[in-house]
Nucleic acid binder design. Structure first.
Lengths: 182, 182
DNA sequence: ATGCACATGTAAGCTGTTACATGATTTC
DNA sequence: GAAATCATGTAACAGCTTACATGTGCAT
């Protein structure tokens, strides 16, 4: 199995919908940051490399009072590679959940410190949860085709399901940790 | 923020319980693979580097009919660094869920292909779920102290919670995708 | 006979992160 | 007046993965 440059496929996914700049790609990824992230410092070089591979084409757009924008468009070859990737089985999802690792070893630190970490996790998940609830309505009005809307709502539903489950588990775990042992 | 070598802390966590070889560390990580993974090819060089930093010491054990084992023990300095890391807030958990990215763009492929990916996910999660159920009993009998047992059970409970939530979401999503649009 | 468990490592290289660099315009 | 947004990139490098290399003993 060759390693896949996942950034490449995320970019192709965005450009498959519409031409966009590296900046636009980053904005899009920020909007789905609860399950996918990208950095500028990775997007720009990968776009360059993709241009060399013939997956995208670049057009520089002059704007007034703003920096020029490099607009990238997907090529037929790019579209082909993108769809080929979409059809492939999902690569196994390798987790590294630091919170759980620390929890496992938390007998070496005060209970309060571990509880604080769990409380921070709850806050984080609640922020995500709120973002998803606000976003759902906007998406319903923006997405036109039925297939796309279904997919978007399913992804949002995933976020809701997982944040709820995580928050519930954090609360339970805090209680268990704070129980007196006797 | 400097980047953390997370492998280092995972290793320290194992060695903090008992002296172990690189092979043992890997075995341990395999047993918690549902939320943490390590490769031999990373463990061995990191162990070497940790020895140079004075976090661990090495002792080579000759065995009959088996390759010699390099047994590593944590030093007081290593223990100190480990606890310092444990106390630090958890680094934000950056996800890259390929399944969700593909789902988001799945209007470009047949519904059946996407459904298959979701079915594979269900199978994967059911395997994990089964593993956790079998493991819980073994852990209850093995772990002695109350604090450690609580932590282990909480981690297992996380696995159960998330796998259940994920399986439920996959099933719902398959149904939604397979509904006729009219 | 085939494969798995035991056991350790090196070499190469991609992926992705952090820090740095620049600067106008808009918003609070 | 400060901060955020728009907009693009380079340099350095840490982290991790993949492929390679080697060999015994036990179980099926």
């Amino acid at each position: 199995m060759a390693k896949m440059n996942r950034t490449k496929y995320a970019i192709l996914g965005v450009l498959n919908e519409r031409p966009a700049s590296g900046y636009d790609v980053k904005k899009f990824c920020d909007s789905i940051a609860y399950f996918w992230n990208e950095n500028y410092s990775h997007i720009y070089p990968v776009l360059k490399q993709m241009e060399e591979e013939g997956l995208v084409t670049k057009k520089t757009e002059q704007t007034e009072g703003r920096p020029p924008r490099n607009i990238f468009s997907i090529t037929p070859g790019g579209r082909e590679e993108f769809v080929k990737w979409l059809m492939l089985p999902v690569e196994p999802h390798i987790l590294r959940a630091e919170l759980l690792l620390k929890l496992l070893f938390s007998n070496n630190i005060p209970v309060d410190n571990m509880v604080e970490k769990l409380e921070n996790k709850i806050e984080e998940q609640m922020r995500i949860r709120e973002y998803l609830d606000n976003g759902a309505e906007e998406i319903k009005s923006r997405i036109k085709t039925e297939r796309k809307l279904k997919a978007w709502l399913a992804v949002i539903q995933w976020g809701r399901t997982i944040t709820d489950a995580t928050i519930g588990w954090c609360e339970e775990t805090i209680q268990v940790l704070q129980e007196d042992d006797e």
